[in-house]
Computed example of a mutant assay.
Amino acid sequence: MLKAALVALGRLDQEHAMVYFQVIWKGLREPMRRALEALVMERQIEGEERFPFVRELMDRSELKGLREGKLEGLREGELKGKRDTLLRLLARAGIALNANESARIHACTDLATLDRWIDNVLGAKTATDVLS
């Protein structure tokens, strides 16, 4: 199907081919994008540089994915750091956690909630005081 799409795009002028290629590219999931990229690269190696805009589009898409992945990684790191801080503070305060309370802390993905719980450790006597 991708080969047929490339053949059809090859019959269009550059401007229209670029628009339709972008529509196709944005509609594909990652495995099919890689397949399309491989087809385009294969044609470029064979000297058929019909779609010069394709490389730029694929590069932008790849950079966007890397950027989103990096941001997600930073967020996960921040969440882990706050969870670890909370657990250390609870341990130092001598506040024991049951399995449900521990699972609740590990499942929390809201930075503001974790910050509030960290603040609640001061003066708390029980895990319920902290996680309220």
Rank of each mutant, 00 (worst) to 15 (best):
R75W: 10
E78F: 07
E15G: 10
C108I: 10
R55Y: 14
E56M: 14
R11H: 00
M32I: 10
R88S: 11
E48T: 06
L89E: 04
K26D: 15
T109R: 11
L71K: 11
G65N: 15
K80Q: 15
A103D: 03
S61R: 08
W25P: 03
I105S: 01
L12M: 06
I95L: 02
A96Q: 15
T85R: 08
A4Q: 08
E62L: 08
V7R: 06
L97S: 10
L87K: 07
D84L: 09
E48A: 03
E15S: 15
L79F: 07
Q44L: 05
L74E: 15
Q22W: 07
R67T: 01
H106P: 09
L9M: 00
P52C: 03
Q44F: 00
A35F: 09
S61F: 14
W25K: 03
A91H: 13
E101N: 00
H106V: 01
E56G: 12
E46H: 12
K26E: 15
R60L: 04
A8M: 08
R33Q: 14
D13F: 01
P52F: 04
M58I: 11
E72G: 03
G47R: 10
W25Y: 12
K70S: 11
E72K: 12
K80V: 02
A35R: 08
N100S: 14
E37P: 13
M41E: 12
R83C: 09
R60M: 02
A38D: 14
L97Q: 06
E30W: 03
L87Y: 04
R33K: 14
A91F: 13
K82D: 09
A38H: 11
D59E: 13
M18L: 09
E15L: 12
G27P: 04
S102A: 14
A38W: 11
S102D: 14
A96W: 11
C108H: 05
L71V: 02
L79A: 04
E37F: 11
G94H: 12
W25M: 08
K64E: 15
E30G: 05
A5C: 09
K70T: 11
G77N: 08
R34L: 13
L63C: 01
R33N: 07
A107E: 12
R29C: 12
L97E: 06
